[in-house]
């Protein structure tokens, strides 16, 4: 009995200890043989980061937060990082919430990696200032802070709403009521106006109806014309007309070309005519001013008379020569 008791107690103890140890190792994803390096990160505040929280690098778990403690005006967190992980040369740590439900992680990032959040940049610069081998750290706001911010915004909106409510007092209500009454009056006038204009609109509508009927008639005539044209087309008459038209167009084009040539020669003749007229004008000017033979003739009547007489005598002489050539010409050989 005694041995049996001892065996049973030992067995239960063994099972229990095994369950605890195996369960703890499995749940914490611990690796017995794995070596870890201890690094210390410095934060202004760690937010929701707690011991045991995962340490990640590019989203992959590479260790855990071992401890957190206050250090002067900062907070220091011991990070146990698996050895063999190729960390950045100058690392920084950003503590952030991993989901809406509160679990936090310490994310290792390169220190020179640009950060979008200006607060993070400020925190990293601030925690890097004391120097040493501590990694600078920053904390992103968690969901609670965002919710608090949203709450403040909601409070502000409520304050604005309250002010609007204060502004919207009894006098404002009275003004609004008066405005509604005025609007009702305007609506009534508009109704009268509409009623008055309705008759005119009816007339216009009737006219439009008539015009529409006329258009309809024209349309029917047009349709009939088109039908006739269609029938003419069917007999080849339209084709013939079109042929004739095409021929006439050709003749017209030819005539136009001829006319263009005539116009070109006329343009040339015009130039020579202009030159001739200029010369004639010059000659007439000289004649008029009494220059030259003709000018002298036109200006001096005695000379003109003498010239006429000379011409008459010349005619008589020629007639006499024709009548009596031997009188004036002698032909001999030797």
């Amino acid at each position: 009995m005694k041995r049996r008791n001892e065996f049973l107690v030992g067995l239960v103890l063994l099972l229990s200890v095994s369950a605890v140890v195996a369960g703890a190792l499995w749940l914490s994803e611990a690796d017995i043989g794995r070596r870890e390096a201890l690094h210390v990160a410095r934060f202004r505040t760690v937010g929701g980061l707690t011991p045991g929280a995962p340490v990640t690098f590019r989203g992959v778990r590479v260790g855990r937060v071992e401890a957190i403690r206050l250090a002067d005006q900062f907070v220091e967190a011991d990070l146990k990082v698996y050895q063999g992980v190729d960390l950045p040369g100058k690392p920084a740590v950003i503590a952030a919430s991993q989901s809406l439900f509160g679990e936090w992680a310490a994310n290792i990032v390169p220190r020179d990696q640009p950060q979008d959040d200006p607060n993070v940049r400020v925190m990293l610069a601030e925690t890097a200032r004391p120097g040493g081998d501590r990694w600078p750290g920053a904390t992103l706001p968690d969901v609670g802070q965002l919710t608090a911010q949203a709450g403040r915004i909601a409070t502000d909106i409520a304050a604005v709403a309250a002010r609007v409510q204060e502004t919207f007092d009894s006098s404002a209500v009275a003004s609004l009521r008066q405005s509604i009454k005025d609007f009702a009056g305007i609506a009534s006038k508009l109704e009268h106006f509409t009623t008055a204009e309705t008759g005119r609109l009816t007339e216009v509508t009737d006219n439009i109806d008539l015009a529409s009927a006329s258009v309809l008639g024209a349309s029917e005539h047009m349709q009939a014309t088109l039908a006739r044209v269609d029938s003419a087309t069917a007999d080849g008459q339209l084709q013939e007309i079109l042929g004739n038209t095409r021929a006439g167009t050709g003749d017209l084009r030819q005539a136009s070309a001829d006319l263009r040539e005539v116009l070109a020669s006329l343009r040339a003749q015009e130039t020579s005519l202009v030159r001739t007229l200029i010369a004639a004008d010059s000659a007439l000017s000289r004649i008029q001013s009494g220059q030259g033979t003709i000018g002298l003739l036109s200006k001096d009547p005695a000379l003109y008379n003498e010239s006429i007489e000379t011409l008459q005598e010349m005619r008589r002489l020629i007639a006499d020569i024709q009548m009596n050539p031997r009188k004036y010409f002698k032909f001999s050989v030797f």
Binding site: V9, V12, L13, L15, S16, V17, A19, V20, G23
Partner: peptide, 15 residues
């Protein structure tokens, strides 16, 4: 001694 032992087994079985 035994309350934690029994509790540890209960924890494992409960989970």
């Amino acid at each position: 001694f035994m309350f934690p032992v029994v509790t540890a087994l209960a924890m494992g079985v409960g989970v």
